[in-house]
Design a protein around this nucleic acid. Structure first.
Length: 295
RNA sequence: GGGCGGGUAGCGAAGUGGUUAAACGCGACAGACUGUAACUCUGUUCCUUAGGGUUCGGCGGUUCAAAUCCGUCCCCUCCCA
């Protein structure tokens, strides 16, 4: 069995996962697309060494900020980690907020044959969104239904994919490939938003500005630093906005992210939702343990 | 006290007599989701018992018709005293 913890940013996934890992004497696999990067610590909400309680954490700090990451890579490495842990008779705990990444591990997503072929796609450069969508409809009608014509990036991606897969892969997205318990942490929206705002202030106090300055000074302009907490401070260092504006934007973008995460987990997963009790976190832990032990 | 500019939906901001609750942006809410997913994209957003009803600082007026014209009062920015 695999234990999976999902939920919006700032809800307490990290804290819960460490407690569970202690309880089950196991290790944690991060399901986060930003914490994978070295040097993006405070802003990504990465577990601090002092919070780890000696628990082994996988998939943190494995990429340089200049490297690219992808769902396919995530799926591959996490599936390897799962196999490793299971061969040691350990229950893998996957924790994170990147919905698609986690879903691609647990369900039958196949990335093997399909990748974005820029050279092939270059021939479509001058076509309009609607023309592109028309092409997709011919190549993969089921994909064309879920992708809006204006979503050019995904339309192109799907066209590229259809080159290698005659039949759309979308139909496999709800076929599980593991035995897992899926716990979703939740909380009243206004409470969570409050927590998020405070957490951002805390990040600033812990030295987020310095952390980002360090990346900025190395002239890192890769995709990694377009993450929330980084892109806003880059704007500040570029002199486009004030520090105060940057902080407010980080808060707002974090709230927007939490909202989007709720949407994904609510509609793409069938979670056991657990409402987090901030005053008595142990109560939350017990609720989660109860759900896991019912399996 | 005098002069200028201005007060438009949660906020910002178009509109300056007549296809219209009022462009657009932001925010908020809801949603889609197989390769940058902390991405990309979509819908709704005055009230409504869905028949309608009330809006563009307040009040009054002109007009068949006003956010748009006139009068008056209130508030704000800037300038002169």
């Amino acid at each position: 069995m695999i234990i999976v913890i999902v939920g919006p940013t700032g809800i307490g996934k990290t804290k819960l996962s460490v407690r569970l890992a202690q309880e089950f004497n196991t290790e944690i696999i991060s399901g986060d697309s930003v914490q994978i990067y070295k040097g993006l610590d405070i802003g990504s909400g990465k577990v601090k060494p002092c919070e780890q309680e000696g628990i082994v954490h996988h998939l943190l700090d494995v990429l340089e900020p200049t490297e690219n990451y992808s769902v396919a890579l995530f799926q591959k490495t996490v599936r390897q980690k799962i196999a490793e842990l299971q061969s040691k008779q350990k229950t893998p705990i996957i924790v994170g907020g990147t919905g698609l990444y986690i879903k691609s591990v647990l369900y039958d997503y196949n990335f093997e044959d399909a990748y974005r072929d820029e050279e092939y796609l270059s021939q479509f450069e001058n076509l309009s969104n609607d023309e592109l969508h028309q092409i997709l409809q011919e190549k993969d009608s089921s994909a064309s239904i879920t992708i809006h014509p204006n979503n050019r990036k995904r339309v192109l991606q799907a066209i590229s994919r259809s080159r290698y897969n005659k039949v759309s892969q979308n139909k496999n997205k709800d076929i599980p490939v593991y035995d897992f318990v899926l716990i979703g942490l939740t909380q009243e929206r206004s409470l969570l938003y409050n927590r998020i705002n405070k957490r951002v202030d805390q990040m600033i106090n812990e030295g987020l500005v310095e952390e980002v300055k360090h990346l900025y000074d190395q002239n890192i302009r890769s995709y990694s630093v377009s993450a929330i907490g980084y892109k806003e401070l880059y704007q500040y260092f570029d002199g486009e906005i004030t520090l105060e504006e940057a902080i407010n934007l980080i808060k707002q973008h974090s709230r927007n992210l939490a909202k989007k995460q709720f949407t994904f987990f609510n509609n793409q997963f069938d979670c056991h939702w657990v409402t987090v009790n901030n005053e008595d976190f142990e109560q939350t832990v017990q609720k989660v343990l109860q759900i896991i032990n019912q399996r």
